[in-house]
Simulated assay, not measured.
Amino acid sequence: MVNPSKITEGGVEYSLGKFDGSYVHYDFKKILIYLNAKGKLLFGKQFKIYKEDKTILLKLISYFLRDKDNCKKYGLDIEKGILLSGPVGCGKTSLMKLLRHLAPRQRPYEMIPCRNVTFSFNHLGYKTIEDYGNTKFFCFDDLGVEPPGRFYGKDLNVMGEVLLSRYELYLETRKRLKTHATTNLNAEELEERYGNRVRSRMRELFNLIAFEKSSRDKRE
């Protein structure tokens, strides 16, 4: 029988808690040890988990492990995706790349830079909206700072259209579709960038988890 409380990385077995045969009792400290080790494998020896990110990590870990009690405590809806916001360099992209490894039995999501979506639209046109407005699970990285979309002289707010398409699918699939995103922008800036209609759909698509504005740039 597979023990869901264990994950093996690089020949080393990590425990995430205790499995009683039907339920895993997760241990946050053990999970952090695993994430620190996995982060070093993914991003290099300089990677580390920062103490000031503990609250953010608790929320993200609770969400990705589908811990209903903690999610309720933090006001997170397991059916929605995650919108992780915070200043440049605070570690949003790294965390979203890392945390998809925490629950390997769940359907994985693909990390897609928003600028790539726009570049694809500028080259291929409206097929891009179909390609990303589908039933795959995505995390759109750096939402809101992508360049404008233009195809044959016609301008389009590409990511706004992609999010509207994914919202429609989210409803059609009875909320089984997952869309995640990272952004440097706050709610007002997102509304200014995409308009009120997209912003209201984003509220229904995403749980907002935000770093403090004062979070340091970890790339320095």
Rank of each mutant, 00 (worst) to 15 (best):
M1E: 12
M1P: 07
V2P: 07
V2M: 15
N3D: 13
K6C: 05
E9D: 14
E9T: 11
G10C: 04
G17A: 06
K18M: 11
D20R: 06
D27Q: 02
D27M: 03
F28V: 11
K29C: 02
K30I: 03
K30M: 13
I31V: 14
L32G: 00
L32C: 13
N36F: 12
K38V: 00
K38M: 14
F43N: 10
F43M: 10
Q46M: 14
Q46N: 15
I49R: 10
K51P: 02
K51A: 12
E52G: 05
D53F: 10
L57H: 02
L58F: 06
L58I: 12
L58S: 12
L58G: 05
K59S: 08
L60Q: 14
I61E: 04
I61L: 13
I61H: 12
Y63H: 11
L65V: 08
D67T: 02
D67N: 12
K68G: 01
D69C: 10
D69M: 08
C71H: 11
K72M: 06
E79M: 03
I82V: 14
L83I: 05
L83M: 14
L84F: 09
L84R: 05
G86P: 02
P87L: 12
V88L: 14
T93F: 14
T93G: 06
S94R: 14
M96P: 04
L99K: 00
L99P: 06
H101A: 02
H101W: 12
R107C: 00
P108M: 02
M111E: 08
I112P: 03
I112A: 02
N116R: 13
V117A: 07
V117P: 00
F119P: 00
F119S: 12
S120M: 08
H123W: 05
L124D: 09
Y126S: 04
T128S: 03
I129Q: 01
D131Q: 11
N134F: 08
N134I: 08
F137V: 01
C139E: 04
L143D: 04
L143Y: 10
G144D: 11
E146N: 07
G149K: 09
Y152S: 01
G153A: 15
K154M: 04
D155E: 15
L156R: 15
L164T: 06
L169H: 04
Y170V: 08
Y170K: 04
L171P: 00
T173N: 04
K175G: 00
R176D: 09
L177W: 01
T183E: 09
N184A: 15
L185F: 10
L185H: 05
E188M: 13
E188G: 06
E192R: 13
E192Q: 12
R193K: 15
R193Y: 05
N196W: 02
N196R: 15
F206E: 00
L208H: 10
L208C: 01
L208P: 04
I209P: 06
E212M: 12
E212N: 09
K213S: 12
S215L: 02
S215G: 11
S215T: 03
K218G: 03
K218E: 02
